[in-house]
């Protein structure tokens, strides 16, 4: 052994190669940074512009405000309606809370059924569920609207979250079914031997193992609901029930000369909740959507 190590001396890497490697790294990172900045620039500009005065916004392409002002935030928060923006945030919250919770519960139940039980017409039913994924949303808008109108649910939040309470989002059911398929059944069988019925098995054994996937489901639902514009636009007519997405549009409608800095400021605020929630739950989110790699 000693012979071998002495026979092959460690050849030093020539300085030219080191320089080339460094240069490559510099080029690579510069390119990545520049492209990254270009992609992020609209967002950076949005944040910068929210601190500009109205006249400055269209005056320059730069994002740094010359005379930073909080006017956009102050006035934007007050809105041109009798309500502050706080009210609209609260309204959004009132839609999101039941929607995400009921989505998690109903989708977990339905996915558990499809993934773990045998029942007549299971294949046909599952195929139907998946088929609804391919159905464009617009197709069902009008029948849905008429249905909810006849039920007297217009101008309330019910049409916005009740469909989710019945596992209306096929995508989430599909995602959870895939996740469940990767989890071995032994734990559930052990629970049955321990005397748990199907529901107890779901609650005590399956749901804790599904947590990463459920968090992803809730995050997706949170973000999609936060960004949903068409739903509230169709079903809500009273301003006091408007969520943030509609309220942003409202400030464009009601004033003759648009106060863009107000709109931009409120857009920045509207972005915040989704960003905060995403970063808090990032770890689970990634775990949840990469379902295939789950270890038993």
């Amino acid at each position: 052994m000693a012979d071998i190590t002495t026979a092959i001396p460690a050849t030093p890497v020539p300085p030219r190669e080191i320089r080339a490697a460094r240069l490559q790294a510099v080029v690579r990172y510069t390119l990545l940074t520049v492209v990254g900045l270009i992609m992020l620039y609209p967002l950076i500009w949005l944040i910068g512009a929210s601190f500009k005065t109205n006249s400055e916004i269209f005056g320059s392409i730069g994002f740094l405000p010359r005379e930073p002002t909080l006017e956009g935030y102050v006035k934007g928060w007050q809105t041109s309606t009798p309500y502050t923006f706080g009210r609209f945030f609260w309204n959004t919250f009132l839609i999101i809370l039941p929607k995400t919770i009921f989505t998690a519960i109903s989708c977990a139940l339905v996915a558990y059924g499809f993934a773990r039980f045998e029942f007549p017409f299971k294949r046909v039913l599952f195929a139907t569920l998946i088929a609804t994924l391919l159905l464009p949303n617009v197709v069902t808008r009008i029948p849905q609207y008429i249905l909810f109108r006849d039920m007297g649910w217009l101008d309330s939040y019910l049409p916005l979250w009740v469909p989710s309470a019945f596992a209306g989002d096929a995508f989430f059911v599909f995602m959870l079914v895939q996740f469940l398929r990767a989890i071995p059944r032994d734990m559930e069988e052990a629970a049955r031997v321990d005397g748990a019925n199907s529901l107890q098995t779901l609650v005590y054994i399956v749901v804790p193992m599904l947590v990463p996937a459920l968090i992803s489901v809730m995050l997706f639902q949170f973000m999609w609901t936060m960004n949903d514009f068409l739903g509230p636009l169709i079903y809500l007519s009273s301003v006091d029930k408007f969520p943030v997405s509609l309220a942003l549009k409202l400030s464009i409608d009601t004033t003759e000369a648009f106060d863009w800095n107000r709109i931009l400021s409120m857009s920045v605020l509207a972005l915040l909740p989704a960003l905060v929630v995403f970063f808090m739950a990032q770890k689970y989110f990634i775990e949840g959507i990469s379902a295939g790699g789950v270890k038993g």
Binding site: P184, D186, M187, A190, I205, P208, M209
Partner: peptide, 8 residues
Amino acid sequence: FQNYALYP
């Protein structure tokens, strides 16, 4: 069970 099946 063969693979223990402990509740993780």
